[in-house]
Nucleic acid binder design. Structure first.
Lengths: 280, 280
DNA sequence: CAAATCCTGTAATATATGTTACAACGCGAA
DNA sequence: TTCGCGTTGTAACATATATTACAGGATTTG
C-alpha cells in the first residue's frame, strides 16, 4: 500500500468525524482526490476547508502543499517503478480479466475497511440490548435481509425494515436513541433510504452505512461508513465486494458475542422456515 | 503512451524553442512535472511562466488548471486500472489472511464455473419468452431477490417465489415445461427448496442450482449446477463467492440480450434519481 | 443539569498562482 | 543596416488558494 494511505490507517483512531470524511475520500479516490485543490477536496468530502487542513496536519504534514508534494512523489514512484507490472495485467486478458475484476474489488473493499471501525461497530452490535434495524433499497434490501438473518442467529432484537416506504416511515417513529440503524445503499441511490438515515440520525440513532466508493448521500448522516468497490462489468455492478464488507462485520460481531451465540443457534435450528418478506 | 504525451508528439512541429523545453520536461518527468504549479514547471523547464501557458495552449488546453485536470484524470486511470498489481507488489502482510480467505473463495468459485454451462444457461435465460422463477431458503432467498431484480431489468417474465412454503407450493403448480427455475441453496440446506427443485424437474422445468461445493440435494434435480466456494470464517460462511457466480451468469445474459436490454433499462431510468449531495 | 472541552464551519486575511499587456530581444529579409 | 515578424521575459494584475482567528454548536464530564 502507499505511505499516505498507511498513515491514514495508523492515525484513524485519532481522527474526528470530519477528519475521517476527508481521509476516506483520500483513500477511496486515491490519488486524484489529493491532487486537486484544498477547497475541492473539502467539497468532495463534504466538509469545510479548515477541516481538511486539520486532517492533513494530523496525518503529519505541515501544510496542504507539503502533503501534495508527498503525494506527487508517491504517484511518481508508481510511474517510475513498475511499468512491467502494468504489462503483466493485460497480458492475461482472456478469462483472467473477469476473475481479477472480482478479486480486486474484494481486495479493495477489504482494504478500505478501517480495522478500528469494524471493532467498535461490532462491539456495539454485540450488546444484545441495543436494537438493530436493517434496511436497503430495491436491490440492496437483499443485503439487509442477509445481515438481519445472520444477526438474528447471534442475538435478539434485530429487525428488517419493510421496503414499503409507508411501513418504513411508521417504523422510523420508533427508532430511539442508541438504536443501531444499518442502511445499505449503492448506486443508483435510494432517496427513501437516505431520508431514513437522516431522520434516524435526528433521533440520535447510530447510523451505519454500507455503500459504494462514490458514496450514498446517506453516508453523511452515518457514524459508520463502509465503502465497497463495485466492479462495473458491462453496466451491471457486482455486490461481491459489498457482501464481503458485511461479512467482515458479522464475523467481528460473532467473535465478540462468542459462546453466548451458540445456544441461540441451536434453538433457531428447530424453528420452521419463516416468512421473511410477506408477499405483496 | 498517454494522451498528453501523444499530443506533445503530434504538435511538436508547431512548438517554439521554449515551448519544446516545457513539452520535453512534461514528457521526461511524467507526470510529476505537470502536477506542480505553473511557476515551478517554468523553472524546471528553464523558461518563464508565460511560456508555459503558451505551450499549454498550443497543446489544446484553455488554461493551466484545465491541463492539470486532464493530467489528473490520466494519472487516476493508471491507478484504477491496476489495483491488483499494486497489491501483488507490496509485501505488507497485515491481516492478509482475512483478505486472502475471501479472495481465494472468489477465485475458486470462478474457476469452478464451466464456461460452456454459463453460455448455455445465459442463452436460455436470454430468450424472454421462457419464464424464470427464482427462489431460495432462509438466507439465500436474498440472492434470489437480487437475481430476480437484475433479470427484470433485462427482460420481462421473471418471478421471485415467496419463501412462504404454502404460497410457494401454490406457485409450483404453475411451473410448466421449459420454464427456468433458479434455486439458491447453501448449507444448511433448505428442505423446501430441495422439494421444489424435485417437483419442478418433474414438471419438465429447467432447474438451475446455485449451491456450495458440498452441494445441496437440490443439485441432483438440476440441469445446471454452479458451486460456490464458501469460506467458513468462524462458523459464518460468506456469500461473496455465491454472489460472484450469480454475477457471472447475469453478465453473460446481459451480453446475449445486448441491445434489446438497453431500451428496457431506459424505462427504468426515468425513476427519480436524486442528487448525490443535496444542498443543505 | 451545568461546565468544560472538543469539534466544526464562517469570515477575514495573507499568500501564491495563473493570466495579461507590453516592451525588449533575436533573427532573417530587403 | 534597417525593417518587420515572431518569440520571450518582466512586471502588473486579478483571481484563486491556503491559512488563521473566532464563535456557535455538539458532546462529554462532573
Amino acid at each position: 500500500m502507499t505511505a499516505i494511505t498507511d498513515r491514514i490507517s495508523d492515525k484513524w483512531d485519532d481522527l474526528t468525524k470530519s477528519d475521517r470524511l476527508v481521509a476516506r475520500r483520500l483513500q477511496a479516490d486515491y490519488p486524484i482526490a489529493g491532487l486537486k485543490t484544498l477547497a475541492e477536496l473539502a467539497t468532495r468530502a463534504g466538509v469545510s476547508a479548515p477541516s481538511v487542513i486539520r486532517c492533513i496536519r494530523k496525518l503529519g504534514f505541515d501544510s496542504y502543499p507539503e502533503f501534495q508534494s508527498a503525494l506527487h512523489a508517491e504517484v511518481q514512484s508508481r510511474f517510475d517503478g513498475a511499468p512491467a507490472c502494468e504489462r503483466a495485467l493485460d497480458a492475461n486478458a482472456g478469462d483472467r480479466s473477469l476473475e481479477s475484476t472480482y478479486v480486486s474489488s474484494v481486495q479493495e473493499t477489504i482494504r478500505l475497511m478501517q480495522r478500528s471501525d469494524v471493532e467498535r461497530l461490532a462491539a456495539l452490535i454485540a450488546r444484545s440490548r441495543t436494537s438493530v434495524l436493517c434496511l436497503g433499497g430495491r436491490i440492496s434490501q437483499a443485503l439487509a435481509m442477509i445481515m438481519q438473518a445472520h444477526l438474528l442467529r447471534l442475538r435478539p432484537n434485530v429487525e428488517l425494515a419493510s421496503n414499503n416506504p409507508v411501513q418504513r416511515a411508521e417504523r422510523l417513529m420508533d427508532v430511539a436513541k442508541g438504536d443501531v440503524v444499518v442502511v445499505f445503499d449503492y448506486a443508483p441511490y435510494d432517496s427513501h433510504s437516505v431520508s431514513f438515515a437522516r431522520l434516524a440520525q435526528q433521533n440520535k440513532a447510530i447510523v451505519v452505512c454500507f455503500t459504494d466508493v462514490a458514496q450514498s448521500p446517506a453516508a453523511q448522516y452515518s457514524q459508520f461508513v463502509f465503502n465497497a468497490e463495485m466492479p462495473n462489468v458491462e453496466g451491471v455492478s457486482s455486490l461481491s465486494g459489498a457482501v464481503c464488507s458485511m461479512d467482515i462485520i458479522l464475523r467481528a460481531v460473532r467473535e465478540k458475542i462468542g459462546i453466548r451465540a451458540t445456544s441461540r443457534q441451536e434453538s433457531l435450528a428447530i424453528l420452521p422456515l419463516q416468512t421473511l418478506h410477506p408477499a405483496k
